[in-house]
Design a protein around this nucleic acid. Structure first.
Lengths: 191, 191
DNA sequence: TTTTTGCAAACGAACGTTCATTCGTATTCG
DNA sequence: CGAATACGAATGAACGTTCGTTTGCAAAAA
């Protein structure tokens, strides 16, 4: 059974993919319309504006990351296990929705005020929560001591290629790749 | 003594910075002109076109990476030491020229044919050389066995935040950060 | 019938670029 | 020397094109 999508959903998915492939600025409404078999003017029967598309995509993903972080933070797991869960969260988001994550990492800068400030605040909140777990892990002797900011950004960046990589030359086993990345990062962290 | 720059050099540097901050498509010639205290039409006394700027920046960096790789590959170092040198190469490029590296990693996709194909070929060559060293390191038992592509892309991505990160809140000790990133990655690689 | 959807046409704005012209400063020539 | 010439650099105006978006109206769905 192929799940039926509303035209609005189709537009949002096509927009996310185009924003990823060409970037927000290089994506025109006429291109987007073509991707969903419409004319540009018809798009406005379903959406408000081009920036509204970007805005919704960015904030939807930001909230996914934040709620994922909060769920992990309130468990009773060890700090190392929390970090492993966070890495898994990023890997899952990257593999399950390879289009939208780029918006969260790259295209948000094309937001205009006041949403730009709002988004930056959400990102800061996320980083703060992640940093606290990293530092707690260091204080507990679970992970190698280093500048937490450096570790955080290195971890976040290292997963970017998964949704950034455009050449699906082989449908490689996603689970295997995820585990290898996780292994690699955790080996670099643990004491 | 402040070294005197030609207007052309100023334009290229401003362009690299704008391409990094706003992206190629969102950077207008009128913006760029303002950044070097000119009117848009005056830019064309010094440069050929907007895309020529992108092209030169992309290929200059691509060749820097490739020559760095070749120099490292022909040494008699162990494979692990070669990988350490490659990581250092990326860290050095990222910290010494924080503007242009983005072009190499992100903005090259806005090139048009035939330069786009040429650039992709250069990137493939680079990846091939890096992969060979990684695989040799695995065969020699120097680094942990895993899918080499996965390791390569994870390493390359993990360094991106250095030139991507826009908030120089503290002038943190660059050498310290570089060493911590290198430590983190090498710990994840070694057997 | 009322509401939703699609489209052609058109809007002002911004885009990269070209053009004729001007200004200042060297270089050449009488 | 002074006058004539050449040239690099900067500019405002305008070009054709594309941009995001609006409008008015027809067809389809409810």
């Amino acid at each position: 059974m192929t799940t039926t999508q509303t035209k609005k959903q189709q537009i949002y998915e096509a927009a996310a993919r185009l924003f990823r492939d060409k970037g927000y600025s290089a994506t025109s409404m006429r291109h987007l319309a073509e991707a969903v078999a419409l004319k540009a003017s018809s798009l406005y029967n379903h959406i408000g504006s081009k920036e509204e598309l970007l805005r919704d995509i960015c904030f939807e993903n930001a909230h996914k990351y934040l709620s994922g972080l909060q769920a992990i933070a309130m468990t009773r797991d060890s700090n190392l296990d929390k970090i492993k869960s966070l890495i898994d969260l990023h890997l899952d988001m990257a593999t399950e929705d390879i289009t939208s994550v780029t918006a969260f990492n790259d295209e948000w800068r094309h937001l205009s005020e006041p949403w730009l400030s709002d988004f930056i605040q959400l990102r800061k909140d996320y980083e703060k929560g992640f940093l606290e777990i990293l530092e707690a892990g260091m204080n507990a002797g679970e992970i190698h001591r280093a500048d937490a900011h450096t570790l955080l950004y290195t971890i976040l960046s290292s997963i970017r290629w998964l949704y950034d990589w455009r050449k699906p030359e082989k449908p490689m086993d996603t689970e295997r790749i995820k585990q290898q990345i996780s292994n690699f990062l955790v080996r670099g962290l643990v004491n």
